[in-house]
Amino acid sequence: MTETPFTHLKAVVFDWAGTMVDFGSRAPMGAFVEAYGRLGVEISIDEARGPMGLPKRAHIAALMADPAIAARWRAAHGHAPGEADIDAVYDVFVPLNEAVVTDYADMIPGAVETVATCRARGLRIGSTTGYVRSIMERLTPIAAAAGYVPDNLVCAGDLADGRPGPLMMYRTFADIGVFPPAAVVKVDDTEPGILEGKAAGTWTVGLSVSGNMVGLSLAEWQALGADEQAARRAEAEAKHRALGVDYVIDSVADLMPVLDAIEARMAKGDGPSA
């Protein structure tokens, strides 16, 4: 009997910061705060985290649209923030992020092993990111030295549009030669990254603990008591569930049982949630 293309998964597409590297997705946060600070406007780490996962210029635009930040910008500069102001922050932000990204380049525990197991199952490994290519040019050699080399890389700015739309996923499908989308899993820690997968028609797996929604380093997370960990995990899981994600796990280290569950559902004719 000939097996249908929908019986088994063909690929997993991973985000980068908070998913495969940089537990807590901390590298961009100080750069956002510093970039605004250099232009006379104070923002908090929590505010900076809000739009995480978007391409970085879009992230800055989303921050500028926040009424509180816009009011601070008006007070500092005498006018509401516009496109030129977004560009000004972006031009300061990118070199700052380039400078610090290598300080937050440790692989998330279990990431390399998970990818090796995926490859042993015959799965292709795709990657998309909200980072621009100049930042990734600093990060990818460190990841490669640690044993992580995905089959492709699509960066913010590579295409006419990025997250939360599907174009970076479409490019990934073409790059790694996989189809249909329902045979692909997108793994991400951010809202725009999950919505990117859903827009493209893939299965989606949200990461609750290792990424932006908790936002703590591994050491900070491990230092929490069990009750505090449970509360923060539950809060992050609820955010993912509200997006209609198919599965939520703590980190990429917990992915393999989910892939088994997805393939069991595929064998019954199930597909990703709409």
Rank of each mutant, 00 (worst) to 15 (best):
F6W: 09
F6S: 02
H8F: 05
K10Q: 14
V12E: 12
A17I: 10
G18W: 01
T19A: 03
T19Y: 04
V21E: 02
G24K: 00
A27T: 01
A27Q: 00
M29L: 14
G30L: 04
F32H: 08
E34C: 06
G40A: 06
G40I: 04
E42R: 11
D46K: 14
R49H: 11
I60L: 11
L63N: 11
D66G: 09
I69M: 02
R74Y: 01
A76F: 09
A80I: 12
A80Q: 06
D85E: 12
I86H: 06
I86Y: 05
D91M: 07
V92E: 14
L96I: 02
N97F: 14
A99N: 01
V101I: 13
T102M: 14
D103R: 02
D103Q: 09
A105G: 12
M107Y: 00
M107N: 09
P109T: 05
P109V: 00
V115C: 07
A116C: 08
A116H: 11
T117M: 04
A120M: 11
A120Q: 15
R124V: 03
R124C: 01
G126K: 09
G126W: 15
S127M: 14
T128C: 13
T128S: 09
T129E: 04
V132P: 08
R133C: 07
I142M: 12
G147S: 07
G147I: 06
L153I: 14
V154C: 12
V154G: 07
P164F: 00
M168K: 10
T172S: 15
T172Y: 10
T172R: 12
I176Y: 08
G177Q: 06
P181C: 09
P181E: 13
P181K: 02
V187T: 03
E191I: 01
P192N: 03
G193E: 05
G193D: 02
L195Q: 11
L195S: 07
E196G: 06
E196F: 06
G197L: 07
T202H: 12
L207R: 04
S208I: 02
N212E: 03
M213A: 00
G215H: 05
L216N: 04
E220P: 12
G225Q: 15
Q229F: 05
A231R: 15
E237Y: 10
A238W: 02
D250W: 10
A253D: 13
A253Q: 13
D254G: 04
L259K: 03
G269L: 12
